[in-house]
Nucleic acid binder design. Structure first.
Lengths: 377, 377
DNA sequence: GGACCAATTGAATCAAGAA
DNA sequence: CTTCTTGATTCAATTGGTC
């Protein structure tokens, strides 16, 4: 399994499909053009993001951020990136079966170019799916929101392709009998899953988590289906495809990535069916921001909060901070401040009055979490 | 407040800005071209989504889904939608202040066209932000994922605009002292907040929740700022802007929407200034020169400063520099020097001894800032 | 062994003001 | 314009060392 061959060695219309479960070495478009048309069920593509980074970025502790500055991510202009995108999307479309689907992942740097090109070429978008990261890199300079997600586009070959695979019931069953939504929560790829070389350096700068690929393939493919990844990299798509009983084809230019992916995939043991269910289940919900109580109308700006014994009182401001006199800060900071402590859980410390009784604002947080607040006002 | 006027009535270069807190009736581009250039701080735009619904959509019980099929949401092709998008984005860019920012919300039907056009016109994307819906409409046919989010793009006028407003500290304080992320959770607009006509029908098919606009405006604007919404609709942007002490300008073609928005905004009570005050961090505080600590007598020349763990020690000189042996320089340079780093914040690195404990010289700076030390010269 | 602490790291379009 | 100085800024996990 997963022999490597150069693109030139490929027999284009081989009836026994000897390119199955292999990595094709070479340029993405050239390799795609050698594959038989209408031969793959699902394409998962993680193309260069065209990050356009300028200069170094340091963390607050002055350590340097290891940026993605590889040559393969450098494009001269949006026009050049668009040309690249259209070329590989066009070649990919020829290879896709009429009822096959394509997934492309990207960030705000490139995903709008990809989405427009998909539409321009006749692909029909089914969903955009958001990968919410449990542990994204912070915004070190505090100049933007923490970039905590990436976007995937899922599309058919054309508008009239209605027979695509979507395992609706399996996903629903795996999601507490609720429809699987378009926002997915997964950690980034770290720890033992992340491929490292002998020196301990990461093999590939943008290795995707297997859990993400598992949900993609569980949703949109069936056992025995052929999954193509035109930017194979460290081979996550191949590893997950093999584990889930799918066949794969990878295209990759760099030998170092091919070597790492080959070894990785060789070590994969295909899973039995019952083991797959747990991988698609939903993840725990994260925190509730105090400001969301204000935004949802549960707490009005100007509301007075006190501790349970009414020793201290503070005023809620529209921006989600608490004010006492001229001082303001988070519910936690201000709770610590009045008590002269280093830390304080503002959710349980601060109370509001309801029916003559003092109740912790944690009660309101629970209402937001449980979805009891709909509409606000 | 919120008088309505026709675009033709508008005095383009009115010094008293009589278009403030009004709704301009007419075509979006025509109205934008009549506004003065570089006159608005924030634009929030909820353009038509170009939904390509093919025939009616029915729920499993055969009831018809009230889809967005209004005439204003029909475009013949992607090219037509792109032309429309470029036209209004270009007109909007002229009106935006050099350090102003724009928000555009959309779904997978149109957001990729919008994002590409933004980039093509020179806007610089800061973030894409995902609005996760707590209560999205289900996918009735079970053929796709439940479409549970919409996407907002936040961008500056151009790449070099670094002075845009982002209330980082307030957002962080409002979010349990953690950076605000790009995935936001809000309910869709229902219940009492949803505008209905006498017959109980929705006034506008895509009314956005006020909570969403509240976070947008709290994040990227300040009290008194001018907020423009070129697709005003039911006036959510104006209602929230008024409540948060911002000024607004709306553009809308349909009289029914203008009437509903006008009545809605008139009923809004603005918050008081204390509730609107927003937390600011060190960035907003006045600069204090280290030498002023010496001039005010807080630090005597010859004082020895050390880092918190007393690994290095330096001597304060009368000119405001630090000396270590024969080397001297600013508190920042010398802090960097001893640590072998490129940069260092001397205010938090260097400490002085007080009562047997090491305290950062930043504490002394705070005393100067708070006016506790009047000397200064 | 386990508890605790320090160090490291991840697809990043990450200053502002004065001279 | 450019160049220089000042000085503001991080979250979740994993890894590895020490007590």
């Amino acid at each position: 399994m997963s022999a490597i061959r150069l693109v030139d060695d490929l027999a284009p219309s081989s009836p026994n499909a000897d390119w199955m479960d292999t990595i094709l070495k070479g340029d993405c478009v050239a390799a795609l053009e050698r594959l038989p048309e209408k031969s793959v069920d699902v394409i998962f593509a993680d193309p260069p993001y065209n990050l356009q980074l300028d200069g170094d970025l340091h963390r607050p502790d002055q350590s340097k951020v290891d940026a993605v500055d590889d040559a393969w991510d450098q494009f001269e202009s949006f026009a050049a990136y668009d040309a690249f995108t259209r070329a590989w999307l066009l070649a990919a479309r020829r290879v896709l079966k009429p009822n096959g689907t394509i997934w492309v992942i990207g960030s705000y740097h490139n995903i709008f170019r990809v989405g427009s090109s998909l539409q321009d070429l006749g692909y029909w978008i089914l969903n955009d799916v958001v990968w919410r990261k449990t542990n994204p890199m912070p915004n070190f300079r505090g100049r933007r929101f923490q970039n905590a997600h990436e976007t995937m586009i899922w599309a058919t070959r054309d508008q009239n392709a209605k027979g695509y695979t979507f395992n609706y019931d399996a996903l629903k069953a795996a999601n507490d009998d609720l429809q699987m939504r378009t926002d997915w929560l997964f950690p980034i790829c770290t720890g033992g899953e992340r491929l490292k070389d002998e020196a301990g350096a990461k093999v590939h700068p943008t290795q995707k988590p297997e859990a993400l690929l598992a949900r993609v393939l569980m949703a949109s493919s069936r056992p025995g289906d052929v999954v193509l990844d035109p930017f194979f990299g460290s081979g996550t798509t191949g590893a997950v495809a093999k584990r889930l009983g799918r066949r794969f084809v990878g295209i990759e230019r760099e030998q170092a990535y091919i070597d790492a992916a080959t070894a990785r995939i060789a070590a994969v043991e295909p899973l039995e069916a019952p083991e797959l269910a747990s991988m698609t289940g939903k993840r725990a919900e994260p925190r509730v921001a105090f400001v969301s109580l204000i935004e949802s109308g549960l707490v009005a700006p100007g509301t007075l909060l006190s501790d349970s014994r009414r020793r201290w009182t503070a005023s809620v401001r529209a921006d989600g901070t608490l004010a006492i006199g001229s001082e303001a800060g988070s519910i936690h900071r201000m709770g610590a401040r009045v008590q002269g402590l280093d830390a304080c859980n503002g959710w349980t410390f601060w109370h509001y009055e309801a029916g003559g009784k003092m109740k912790p604002i944690d009660d309101l947080r629970r209402q937001v979490r449980d979805g009891m607040v709909v509409g606000g006002a």
